[in-house]
Amino acid sequence: METLYLLYTEVYKILFLLIPILVSVAMIVWFDRRVWGFIQRRKGPNVVGPFGLFQTLADALKYIFKEIIVPASANKAVFIIAPIITMTLALSAWAVIPLSETIVISDINVGILYIFAISSLGVYGIIMGGWASNSKYPFLGAIRSAAQMVSYEVSIGIIIINVLLCVGSLNLKDIVMAQQNLWFIIPLFPMFVIFFISALAETNRPPFDLPEAEAELVAGYQTEYSGMMYAMFWLGEYANILLLCALGSILFLGGWLSPVDLYPFNIIPGIFWMLLKILLLFFVFAIVKAIVPRYRYDQLMRLGWKIFLPFSLLYVVLTASFLVYFDLLPKGNY
């Protein structure tokens, strides 16, 4: 009976987080298109609902009612599993993201490693989709995407090490609480910039959207997908973008902490600041999509391996030396 009750409360908590995330994914898709439109002096989606807010819901309905076409020569099981994996992984990483001091599903000790592991699994959805389609364009797109995600994960990992050096814990709450006096964006500003660019590459956003470069690869790994399965890839992609925005605000922008610890600001609940920071980062994501031209593939690889990796490694050495020299290393419980 107790087990059942535990199960009930856990499921309740999970649903309480997942449904808002799905709704906010729909909202940020609208936001993304709207920003994109304004930058290009268009209006963007503005017909369905007030300011076009329900545009994404209308799109989702359209996807639901479309036929799911499985190509005759596709590897059917893998073809169907691929979008499910992408979406599940994108949502399951949210389990450890603390939206405020109390709002988190599971507060585990290795939270940052968990997120890193889940996001490194995300590449399988794409590879499986591209391989199972049994067609040239999806396969090329999948190979490109896998190489891209693996390369940029390395630099994200090293950037995370920079932050962890200053925190002394892998717990996401501890990472936020360590920024009470100084957000890490100030001492680690170059790392924040590199993190942001790597996040763009990790989520296959422009200017690094080579896996789905429409001029070369039709739509990359998604070419053969239709209907709800395509929508799942798409939802997973945006949930991933939101996840990396949340990670960026936890690592560098002080999570749910208010910018100044003064009276009118510090009574506002933490979740407000957290959502504001996520939205701010996403706004920059949306702007970048509209104003930057696409990279060539060799430029992308060069940027990842020859510039970001050495630079962030150098910064690890710098941070560590600084902390040791000024005796600022977090001692923790020792």
């Binding site: 000790n109 290795v110 490693l113 592991a117 889940i118 490194s120 590879i127 190979i143």
Partner: peptide, 25 residues
């Protein structure tokens, strides 16, 4: 052993198995 488990995911699944998959494909 949560650290070991996560390392297993990151190293084996996130990196080694991707290379395996590449070679096989």
């Amino acid at each position: 052993a949560e650290f070991l488990g996560m390392m297993m995911l990151i190293v084996y699944v996130g990196a080694v198995a991707v290379l395996f998959l590449f070679v096989v494909m």
